[in-house]
Amino acid sequence: MAREPLSVVVTTFNNADTIGACLASVAFADEVVVLDSGSTDATRAIAEAASARVHVQPFAGYSAQKQAAIDLATHRWVLLLDSDETLPADAAARVRDALVEPTVAGYEMLRREWVFWRWQPARARLNHYVRLFDRGRARMSGHEVHESVVVDGPVRRLAAVIDHHGERDIEGRVDKANHYSTLQVRDRHTREPGALRLRMVAYPTVAFFRYYFLRGHWRGGWAGFIAARVHAFYAFLKYAKLYERRVSRRRG
């Protein structure tokens, strides 16, 4: 049976340290498209050396930039990766198998996180995202942050795990929490909830409990504990910045 051809799509900006491994892991694809936001390091040269089709445009926001990259793809089926993600060999095989006469509009894939100095523990809960999809029946959500693929049609969970080589240190993770909380407050999709002062006080504890205990990151030793604390800090920042915006509006 014939397999649907696959376009792998990656957005980049100064990712010379990770883009080579990312593209090497998807060398089986029929096409690799890289949309760069104007890197000043070797990102584009590395991508071109890996035979990717490289385009450049100014950064338009996470969701819009990824949508622009998807629109550059030639083939109907797209695998969307971040520049610091890789596809292990077993996951690549499952992606290829899924494209043999697919009967759904998209596939969710699990993602394993690198947490500072180790992989998250095997029994911790993995996040899952739609990453493999028919681009004729899918689009980016439009969110400023935590953007996702929205699929018009049935979606199935694929037994394949993406490896995410994320923030390598605590400073990077805290910087990301600060940046993402600002974007989330700015996002036109974000509705301002009530009881913001109560949420500032209570929700960081709830966020820590969910991440550390319910999602199983307590199994990850001190790396899991620190990540849970940063996650709680992110929750606090989000509500604190929403409250700051409310006060600023009242003061004109």
Rank of each mutant, 00 (worst) to 15 (best):
V10W: 04
G136I: 04
I170N: 03
R94Y: 05
F59E: 11
R3V: 12
R215S: 04
R111S: 07
Y203M: 13
R111C: 09
D169V: 08
Y180E: 08
E192R: 15
W77L: 11
N127Y: 00
R188M: 12
H189Q: 06
G252R: 15
L79G: 10
P204V: 07
E171A: 14
P193G: 02
H164A: 05
D134V: 03
V130D: 01
L110A: 15
A177W: 09
N15H: 13
A47Q: 04
W218L: 15
N14S: 09
A91W: 00
S83M: 03
F233W: 13
A68N: 09
D169C: 10
R250G: 10
S51E: 11
H217A: 03
V9P: 03
A73I: 10
T86S: 15
Y62W: 14
A98L: 01
R157F: 01
R191K: 14
R53K: 08
E108H: 13
T103N: 10
A195E: 07
A235R: 08
L23E: 00
Q184D: 13
G220I: 05
A159D: 15
A235S: 15
A50C: 12
A52D: 01
L72R: 14
E101F: 01
S141M: 00
R157D: 12
A98D: 10
G172W: 08
R186N: 14
F233E: 07
D97W: 01
E4C: 13
P58E: 08
D169K: 04
L132A: 07
P58N: 06
